[in-house]
Computed example of a mutant assay.
Amino acid sequence: MAKYMLIMRGTDESYAEMTKVPFEEMLATMGRFNEELIRAGVLVAAEGLDDPSQGVVVDFAGDTPVVTDGPYGETRELFGGYYVIDVASKEEAVEWAKRLPAVPGSKCEVRRVPGIDEFPQDNEWIARERAWRERTGQL
């Protein structure tokens, strides 16, 4: 099994379409999909994000980070939420991504989440992270 992140990305247009759907209907649609993931035993985590106007961007383009408050200008692709699933293959992760209840114009990026065992185990920082994961029940 391997973990994959399904990263939901939208545009200004797809976010506008999403606001046309009644909130209760959207919750029910996402809830049914979440329940499918739970029943299949693949859901690890899932979160949606607050409105982009409530966020900030920290830009590292210069010597000093520059913080800009939302709302933003035109956004071509905006990260809107994610799922982490534990499945047998990238192909299975893609099949789940294809079933996401998404509005037209949005996208879902599928990326594998490497496990801690894939990093050098003799590295001090990896050892510290492993110990923290063990203490918190993540391993």
Rank of each mutant, 00 (worst) to 15 (best):
M5D: 00
I7Y: 02
R9D: 07
R9V: 01
T11N: 14
E13V: 03
M18S: 15
K20Y: 05
K20D: 04
V21A: 09
P22L: 08
L27Q: 15
A28R: 13
M30Q: 10
G31F: 11
R32H: 10
F33K: 02
N34L: 08
N34D: 15
E35C: 11
L37E: 03
I38Y: 05
I38W: 00
I38R: 15
R39V: 13
L49G: 15
D51L: 05
D51K: 08
S53V: 06
G55Q: 01
V58G: 09
D59Y: 02
A61G: 12
A61W: 00
G62Y: 00
G62R: 07
T64L: 14
V66Q: 15
V66L: 13
P71Y: 05
P71T: 04
P71L: 08
Y72A: 13
Y72S: 15
E77H: 06
E77T: 08
L78D: 04
L78E: 07
F79P: 09
G80V: 05
G81M: 06
Y82K: 08
Y82M: 08
V84N: 00
I85P: 04
I85Y: 02
D86S: 12
V87S: 04
V87M: 03
K90S: 07
A93D: 01
A93H: 00
A93Q: 02
A93T: 03
W96N: 02
K98L: 09
P104Q: 02
K107R: 15
R111G: 09
R112E: 10
I116P: 11
D117W: 01
D117I: 12
E118N: 10
P120C: 12
D122V: 10
I126F: 03
I126Y: 01
I126E: 04
A127H: 00
R128L: 11
R128T: 14
A131M: 04
A131E: 14
A131H: 06
W132Y: 12
W132H: 11
R133I: 03
R133Y: 10
R135C: 07
R135T: 11
